[in-house]
């Protein structure tokens, strides 16, 4: 049914006439809503549009609580956020976490993967609904930006753009990032860029540098070490609306969902796969 009698305050200006039934869309069959019902009958699309106008969409959580705190609740809609970090900084993990949150809410998301780095099994273990994830594998940086713009245009709520490991393949001018920022603002979705070093310049609303310390291992004393997680640490390099040079450093929650063992059967007696599956609890 497209007609709803959902009560809407009469003070809001209404588009009229309102079509009452899909069949009425045929030319010559348009049904005018009677005068006395105008103001009370709406098309579903109008109700939706109005509801979204009244309540702007909340920021998209990244799934990393401390990072959400730094960003003011999550990834802002209509803006670019850049995370830069080198190997083992937790950059990909944060991207995967944000994708897991969005796909977990039943919404599709896009991952533009410049270095062809996605490993689907750990991503699935982290909660990403792979059926809702569109994965594009460009070869060059310019292609990656073009792909991101395409996905933003398709209306995906979150597009994650991972630029892989240095050196970046290809170059783009600073105008390319501004163009992406305009596309994000126009479509109201969120763009999360993961890069080995800051690249977006002034196009991003916030640029954070990720850098961890040492890996978190268990069982080292017993001689059977097991990788449990990576410590994440974020530094705000730049955020629009704040004085330049202002920095905030925050220790983030530990990424610590243990992976399924890469192979399955341990070859050495000391490394039992069961130990790798230690249940991931909160680490203080």
């Amino acid at each position: 049914m497209e007609v709803s009698e959902h009560p809407v305050p009469a003070s809001r200006p209404l588009p009229a006439p309102v079509v009452a039934h899909p069949s009425a869309r045929r030319p010559g069959r348009r049904v005018e809503v009677p005068e006395e019902l105008r103001g009370r009958v709406f098309r579903a699309a109008e109700l939706l549009r109005e509801a979204r106008r009244r309540e702007p969409e909340p920021p998209l959580p990244t799934g990393v609580e401390a990072l959400d705190g730094l960003l003011g609740g999550g990834l802002p809609r209509g803006a670019v956020v850049e995370l830069s970090g080198s190997r083992s900084s937790g950059r990909l993990a944060t991207l995967i976490s944000a994708l897991a949150v969005v796909t977990g809410m039943g919404e599709p998301a896009g991952l533009v993967d410049l270095g062809d780095h996605l490993d689907p099994r750990p991503a699935e273990a982290a909660g990403v609904d792979l059926a809702r994830l569109l994965w594009l594998r460009p070869r060059r940086l310019a292609e990656a930006l073009e792909c991101a713009e395409l996905l933003l245009g398709a209306g995906l709520p979150l597009v994650a753009l991972d630029l892989g490991l240095p050196p970046l393949r290809g170059r783009v001018g600073p105008g390319a990032w501004m163009r992406l920022a305009r596309a994000v603002r126009e479509h109201g979705n969120a763009l999360l860029v993961g890069s080995p070093h800051p690249v977006t310049g002034h196009a991003a609303r916030a640029v954070l540098r990720l850098g961890g310390g040492r890996g978190l291992w268990s069982g080292r004393r017993e001689g059977v070490p097991l990788l449990e997680g990576l410590p994440l640490e974020a530094t705000v390099l730049r955020r629009r609306g704040e004085a330049p040079g202002e920095r905030r450093v925050r220790e983030l929650a530990v990424a610590e969902r243990p992976l399924p063992s890469p192979a399955g059967t341990p070859a050495a007696p000391g490394a039992a796969p069961g130990r790798r599956r230690v249940a991931g609890g909160g680490r203080p």
Partner: peptide
Amino acid sequence: PPRSRPEPRAGRGLLAVRA
């Protein structure tokens, strides 16, 4: 998409592998 929008889950923490 599901008929109702589920609340975003709290982060589970994760360890991602860059293949």
